[in-house]
Design a protein around this nucleic acid. Structure first.
Lengths: 141, 141
DNA sequence: AGATTATTACGAAATATTTCGTAGATAAGG
DNA sequence: CCTTATCTACGAAATATTTCGTAATAATCT
C-alpha cells in the first residue's frame, strides 16, 4: 500500500516536464533558462524553483541534492503522462470519443504526405493485431 | 471593429456547452439537472447560474430573457470550439505535434474496425485534397 | 391578500495555480 | 576577511476558477 500515482500535471508543470524529457536531468538554472526562452517574457528563478518543489511533493520529479545545485529529473514517463492527459482531454472536450478527436486533428489542419503514411502504417499494425487477437472468429480462413 | 472572439472555455464552461450542444437551448434548471446527473454530487443551482452569467459576458452563450426563466443557447459551434481546444492541447501536451497526438490516441486504446475504416476514408480524402491543391506543381503531367 | 416557491443578480468565500520577495546558507572572488 | 553571487526554503500576494449564500423580485398557491 504505498502507491499513490502522481496526479495530472498542471500547465506549468507540463512545460517543465517537456524540458526534462528533452534535455534530461537538469538544475533549476538550466530549466529556468529553457522556460524563459520558450516564452516571450523572463520567468522568475524562484518561480521555477517553487514549481519544482511542488512537483517533487507530488512525485512528478525526483531530485539529487548531493551538490548544492540540486538536479531534477522527470519521475513520470512522457508517453504515460501524455496518455493520461489525453484521456482527460478526450472526455472533457470530445465527450469521450477518441475517434472524433482524431478526425478533428486530421481534418482541420494540414497534414503532410509523410505523416499520412505513418498513420497508415499504424492503422495496418492495429488491424493485424485486431485480427490475430480475434483469431477465434477467423479460424475458418 | 466589433469582433472579440470568445475565449477558450474553462472546464465547467465546456461541460455546460456539451449540454447545450446536445440538448439545444435550455433553462438554468434543465442545465443544472443535466450537470447533476453527469457527476456524483449535486451541483448548486446558483453555481450553474453564475457560470452561465459569466459565459454570457464572455460571449460563449446567448440568452433569451423574454420569459422569467431565461433560455440559454450556445454561441459557439462545437467543431470550432473543439478545434481551438485541440490546438492548445497539442501545444501543451504534445509539443505541437498533432501527429504524435494521433498516434497516441490510436495506439494506446482499442479502436474498432469500423472506426479504423472511417479514419482510412478520411486519409484518402485528405490525400486527394493535397494532390488537387498542389496542381501547380503537377501541371506538367 | 398572505405564504410559499422559483428565479435572477451579485458579492464573496473556497480552491487551485502561478508568481515573486525575502531570509538564510553556502560558495566564490578579491 | 569581507563582499558579492548563487542557491534553497518558505510565505504570501496575484490571478483564475468554482462554489455558494443572500437579497430582491416575480410567479403560484390556498
Amino acid at each position: 500500500m504505498s502507491k499513490a500515482p502522481p496526479p495530472k500535471p498542471t500547465d506549468s508543470e507540463l512545460e517543465i516536464l517537456h524540458v526534462l524529457w528533452q534535455h534530461g536531468p537538469a538544475t533549476v538554472r538550466v530549466i529556468n533558462d529553457h522556460l524563459s526562452q520558450r516564452r516571450q517574457a523572463e520567468v522568475g528563478y524562484t518561480t521555477t524553483l517553487k514549481i519544482l518543489q511542488l512537483m517533487l511533493e507530488k512525485g512528478l520529479v525526483r531530485r539529487d541534492d548531493a551538490d548544492r545545485s540540486h538536479v531534477y529529473r522527470a519521475a513520470v514517463r512522457e508517453q504515460e503522462t501524455q496518455g493520461l492527459l489525453l484521456d482527460k482531454f478526450v472526455d472533457a472536450a470530445f465527450g469521450g470519443s477518441a475517434l472524433k478527436l482524431v478526425m478533428q486533428a486530421l481534418g482541420s489542419r494540414q497534414t503532410s504526405a509523410d505523416e499520412l503514411a505513418q498513420i497508415r502504417r499504424l492503422l495496418n499494425d492495429i488491424e493485424i493485431q485486431n485480427s490475430t487477437a480475434n483469431s477465434d472468429d477467423d479460424e475458418h480462413a
